[in-house]
Simulated scan of single mutants.
Amino acid sequence: MTDYARAERRQLADLLQQAGPDQPTVNTGWTTRDLAAHLVVRDRRPDAMIGVLIPPLAGHGEHVRLAKAAQPYAQVVQEVRTPPWWSPISNPLVDALSNTVEFFIHHEDVRRATPGCTRRVLEPGEQRAIWQATRLTARLALRKVGFPVLVEAPGFGTVRVGTGEPRATVTGEPGELALFVSGRQRVAEVAVTGEPVEVEKLRTAGLGM
């Protein structure tokens, strides 16, 4: 069985090393150095990541990330490549669920910031693993838009968010849907159908966690 979380981590580390520290990413304002530092902090400093859940503590997390980003880039990338054996989100019990989609998305953050980048063809097994995580993310992220939405991944399943008849539908492969519901609508290759107002709101909403 393929370990997709570790494969995506390895491929992203290779790409970060190849790109160097100053390349732009899909994350507005973040270079490859910023992204690499974020991943190391996520793996190794759970105290810094709590600001995601408790906004008043976000300043501490950003301070820790900036300190990590100031370290030698090669060292930071090596830490991305070699996570600690045990952490709340990088351990054998939760690695597949918490990191497959995380590292796929950040891999694409680097890839798709390059003009002319083409979509990767993912194995069905990796698409299934990404869909497993994306179903939950979609339910959380799409509540923000304020109307019912149907998310379709042909061959993998559907998710209905909100009550009542869906007023917009987002259709695509699991990997593309993962990018869309994480707030990367502008680079996600999906079809969004429905009334023009709802379609535009979906494409421009501040989605993600």
Rank of each mutant, 00 (worst) to 15 (best):
T118K: 10
E195W: 07
P55N: 00
P166G: 11
D43R: 03
V64T: 01
G183M: 04
V41L: 14
P88V: 06
R81D: 13
V80E: 07
L179N: 13
V26I: 09
A178H: 01
G59N: 07
K68G: 02
E152I: 05
V52E: 00
E165M: 01
I105P: 13
L12C: 08
L207G: 01
V161W: 00
T204W: 12
H107E: 05
S90N: 14
R119Q: 13
E126T: 09
M49S: 01
I89Y: 10
A141G: 10
G116S: 02
A188C: 07
R65E: 06
L39D: 03
G146Q: 13
W86P: 03
H60C: 01
P72Y: 12
G208Q: 04
L150T: 01
Q17I: 07
T169Y: 04
T100V: 08
R128I: 14
R139G: 03
Q17K: 11
R112E: 03
A74S: 11
F180P: 14
L57R: 05
I54H: 04
N99K: 08
T31H: 13
S87F: 08
G162W: 03
T25C: 07
G155R: 02
H106Y: 14
G146M: 13
V190P: 01
I50Y: 02
R186S: 11
E8S: 04
T158C: 03
F104E: 09
G20W: 11
T171Q: 11
I50W: 04
A58T: 01
N91A: 14
P55R: 12
A19N: 01
L142M: 05
T28G: 15
V41F: 10
P154F: 07
T32P: 02
P88Y: 06
A74W: 02
Q75R: 13
R167P: 03
F180K: 12
Q11S: 09
N91H: 10
D95T: 07
D34H: 11
V121Y: 08
Q132K: 15
W30L: 02
R81S: 08
F147T: 11
A188Q: 09
L93G: 09
R6G: 00
V170R: 06
E200Y: 14
P84G: 12
G20F: 10
T28Y: 15
D47S: 02
Q71E: 11
D109K: 12
V145C: 13
V190C: 01
S87V: 06
A188V: 04
R160A: 08
T28D: 15
R81F: 10
P46I: 02
A141K: 09
V181P: 06
P55G: 02
Q23G: 10
T2K: 14
Q132I: 12
V101S: 09
L93I: 11
E165F: 00
T114H: 12
W131V: 07
F103G: 14
D22G: 12
V151T: 09
R65S: 10
R120I: 01
Y73K: 03
P154C: 07
E123L: 09
D109V: 10
E198Y: 14
L179F: 11
V121R: 15
P21A: 15
D95P: 04
G59V: 04
R81Y: 04
Q71C: 03
G116T: 06
L15V: 10
L122D: 01
G157V: 15
R167L: 13
K68W: 00
E108R: 09
S90K: 13
T163Y: 00
V151C: 07
E126I: 15
R33Q: 10
G125H: 01
R203S: 03
A7W: 11
P166F: 11
